Computed example of a mutant assay.
Amino acid sequence: MELCPTIKNILLLDSEGKRIAVKYYSDDWPTNAAKEAFEKAVFTKTQKTNARTEAEITMFDNYIVVYKFVQDLHFFVTGGENENEIILATVLQGFFDAVGLLLRGTEDKKEALENLDLILLCLDEIVDGGIILETDANVIAGKVDSHSMDAGAPLSEQVNLLLFHSSDYPLAKSIATILTYLVLQQTITQALATAREHLTRSLLK
């Protein structure tokens, strides 16, 4: 019986090799330090290549890595050494195009960070536990848009999403900490407003 293709990780790095959004689906890198070392090594190996018009493929440390760049964003998808390169490239292209749709053509680090929640949702729609769910960029972007958090969404939802991904990169944890503070402030403000309302009503009786 043929095994389903699996993804080891999906990486979105900036032009200096720093994390923007990453997701690991394998225990091959058991610690955050191991993950960061892999990211640095992959970035160093590929940064001088011209992967801006078409995706390129390389073998690295017994893994197949497919990658593509746009502006200051570097996209990577990693699979095992026996994985199908075409499938990995299809996943990469789906992620690449979906991010382009979600960022509405402004594909750079600043825009990516401002829409980090959408990119995290995008990753969740593409792969789950290493198993490929979807590679069609239009479908991925459509699903993300359908349940993405708009400006009116509760801050608690944003905190939960960022905390879910915080083990993969510290930026999400930092943002989640700030949002947690805002949630508490929001709760306190609402409580005070309710108390004032009850007090006003009691005085008017």
Score class of each variant (00 low, 15 high):
95 F>E: 00
156 S>E: 12
21 A>D: 07
115 N>Y: 04
35 K>G: 07
198 H>T: 04
27 D>W: 03
167 S>I: 14
1 M>N: 06
106 T>C: 05
8 K>D: 01
13 L>F: 03
34 A>P: 06
107 E>L: 09
184 L>T: 10
187 T>N: 13
175 I>T: 14
115 N>I: 02
150 D>S: 00
40 K>A: 09
130 G>D: 01
3 L>V: 04
165 H>K: 14
12 L>T: 00
204 L>A: 13
158 Q>R: 14
135 T>V: 06
102 L>C: 02
102 L>Q: 01
186 Q>D: 12
67 Y>L: 09
197 E>D: 07
106 T>Q: 11
77 V>T: 12
202 S>M: 13
182 L>E: 13
7 I>T: 00
23 K>M: 06
109 K>Q: 09
165 H>V: 08
50 N>P: 02
81 E>T: 06
90 T>P: 01
187 T>C: 12
68 K>N: 12
71 Q>D: 10
126 I>M: 09
17 G>Y: 07
178 I>L: 13
24 Y>W: 05
205 K>T: 04
68 K>C: 08
112 A>Q: 01
193 A>P: 11
114 E>W: 10
157 E>F: 12
22 V>D: 08
89 A>L: 08
4 C>M: 05
163 L>R: 15
165 H>P: 11
42 V>Q: 08
137 A>M: 02
138 N>H: 06
73 L>K: 15
172 A>T: 15
79 G>E: 10
108 D>N: 15
75 F>S: 01
66 V>R: 03
103 L>K: 01
42 V>P: 09
132 I>M: 04
131 I>K: 15
25 Y>Q: 00
55 A>H: 11
63 Y>G: 04
181 Y>M: 08
103 L>V: 00
77 V>I: 13
161 L>H: 13
161 L>D: 10
141 A>D: 11
56 E>H: 12
24 Y>R: 08
145 D>V: 03
167 S>T: 13
141 A>Y: 14
35 K>R: 15
121 L>P: 04
70 V>Q: 09
72 D>A: 06
39 E>G: 05
125 E>C: 06
30 P>A: 07
144 V>G: 00
106 T>M: 08
151 A>Q: 13
78 T>C: 12
99 V>I: 05
106 T>A: 07
143 K>T: 04
99 V>T: 07
87 I>A: 06
4 C>G: 03
109 K>M: 02
65 V>M: 14
167 S>G: 09
182 L>P: 04
110 K>R: 11
82 N>I: 02
184 L>G: 11
75 F>R: 03
26 S>F: 05
138 N>Y: 04
116 L>N: 08
84 N>I: 00
45 K>Y: 10
147 H>N: 08
109 K>P: 02
128 D>L: 10
112 A>M: 02
192 L>V: 08
146 S>P: 07
147 H>W: 09
76 F>W: 03
